[in-house]
Design a protein around this nucleic acid. Structure first.
Length: 259
DNA sequence: AACACTCACAACCGCCATATC
DNA sequence: TGATATGGCGGTTGTGAGTGT
């Protein structure tokens, strides 16, 4: 069944945004907040699709965005998170304050993927490339329109639900905006039960230097993501730990910024 | 100087999930 | 309960800047 278009395309501008359009959008959102994207263009006097306005705001105009090059820490974190989550850019972006999913996606495709390939690592599986299938596994994901093989990830199949479950929390995330990561995460559970009881993460990712020690967290115990990613207590998050591991779910807070 | 090529990134498109009626 | 509207996500494309020949 066809859907009605999100806007009247014949009356909308496309392509690069002008400074005037940016100013109008900023002014409107400052005055009225991020309300209904569909009606925003008309209210703001913009000849743009609502989705286009949202994208422009989210990826470029938001005041809390951090511009500039990715740091080494961010680079490493993206690789680790990608190893866990796959191409769940919005979830990855949720762990990198000030970065957008689009930005991270672009950075991955233009920088990290190439680096990994040059290092002989398959950017999709994070495993060493085998000479026999290197071409298909490495380049294929980026250039072919054919769907990826069943599940490219050796770890946890990162469906939207399971990936969101990784970030399930018992307390609200301090670094996420209310309508960004929050929506997809909150949608995964409404029962109050442990949200990822069956998650069995194997972090034997090629580029991960140190998985949790012998005493691997089991499905019986909630585990902090930063623990999975090889960070030790206090290095990257605020979760409480003792000798047996994290005590509670918590958001991974990789990079604290005074924003 | 002119052209070709590559790179980086903003923006678009189509689909999916959720909310609402 | 199904249809529709809306927001959001991930893949892909378009284009300007930079670089090499």
């Amino acid at each position: 069944m066809g859907r009605s278009p999100c806007c009247e395309k014949e009356h909308t501008n496309k392509g690069a945004w002008t400074k005037e359009e940016d100013q109008r959008l900023i002014a409107h959102i400052r005055a009225h907040g991020e309300g209904c994207w569909r009606s925003l263009p008309k209210a703001a006097g913009l000849l743009r699709c609502g989705k286009s306005c949202r994208l422009r705001w989210m990826n470029y105009l938001r005041p809390d965005l951090k511009r500039g090059n990715f740091t080494d820490d961010e680079n490493d974190l993206i690789i680790r998170l990608h190893g866990l989550l796959g191409n769940r850019w919005s979830l990855i972006a949720g762990q990198l304050p000030g970065r957008t999913d689009n930005e991270i996606k672009n950075y991955w495709n233009t920088h990290i993927k190439r680096k990994l390939l040059a290092s002989g690592i398959d950017p999709q599986t994070h495993r060493p490339l085998l000479s026999g299938n290197a071409a298909s596994s490495g380049g294929g994901a980026a250039t072919n329109k054919a769907p990826l093989p069943a599940r490219p990830h050796p770890i946890a199949a990162p469906t939207k639900a399971s990936a969101a479950a990784i970030f399930a929390v018992t307390k609200p995330p301090p670094v996420l905006s209310s309508d960004d990561g929050g929506r997809s995460i909150s949608g995964t559970t409404s029962t109050g039960e442990p949200r990822c009881p069956d998650l069995n993460l194997d972090l034997s990712v090629g580029s991960t230097p140190s998985s949790p020690p012998a005493e691997t967290p089991t499905s019986q115990r909630p585990v902090c993501l930063c623990y999975h990613l090889g960070f030790r207590a206090g290095e990257a998050c605020s979760c409480q730990t003792d000798s047996s591991g994290p005590q509670e779910f918590t958001y991974f807070r990789p990079l604290e910024h005074g924003q």
